[in-house]
């Protein structure tokens, strides 16, 4: 039994020796960093909640290759983003542009906040003008009253 365990252990421990050293993933780390910074702003259309930088979908692979090639060619970040939106629409952008159709998206939350604050201010002002007998008396006041009796 012990012999078997030892053998198994040896087999497990020798495994890393068989593994190859990982080859450096990229030739040019600066370029790769730029590629990653651009593709992490872009949505992968196959698995929609991942960025192109993160996704393992084949399309994301192809698009990363495309971005790499465009960078080598000397294209600017804007040219690359434009290239992507010309093909896949604004949907690929994780930060949608501010334009007429996205105003609600950008300013809606602010609008809700302002509306909520306005409603709160209105209600509070109304209540401050009400006469005290419109409210339930505080429990402490009741206690005082009972004590005085």
């Amino acid at each position: 039994m012990a012999k078997w365990i030892a053998l198994l252990l040896a087999a497990c421990l020798s495994w890393p020796v068989l593994a190859n050293e990982a080859a450096p993933a990229v030739a040019d780390p600066v370029l790769e960093a730029r590629m990653l910074s651009i593709t992490s702003e872009l949505r992968c259309l196959v698995c929609q909640n991942q960025t192109i930088a993160d996704s393992h979908a084949e399309l994301a692979d192809d698009l990363r290759r495309q971005v790499r090639e465009m960078l080598v060619r000397g294209d600017t970040d804007k040219q690359i983003i434009d290239y992507m939106t010309a093909r896949y629409g604004d949907f690929v952008l994780y930060r949608p542009p501010v334009k007429a159709t996205t105003w609600l998206l950008w300013f809606g939350p602010g609008l809700l906040l302002v509306g909520g604050l306005a409603a709160l201010a209105l209600v509070l002002r109304q209540r401050s003008r009400m006469s005290p007998d419109r409210f339930e008396p505080d429990e402490l006041d009741i206690a005082d009253e009972i004590a005085q009796r």
Binding site: L45, V46, E58, L59, D62, L63, Q66, R87, Y88, G89
Partner: peptide, 13 residues
């Protein structure tokens, strides 16, 4: 074969 024209057409599925 390499899907480049597919990319130009915005193919994703």
């Amino acid at each position: 074969s390499d899907g480049r024209v597919g990319i130009d057409f915005g193919v994703y599925g």
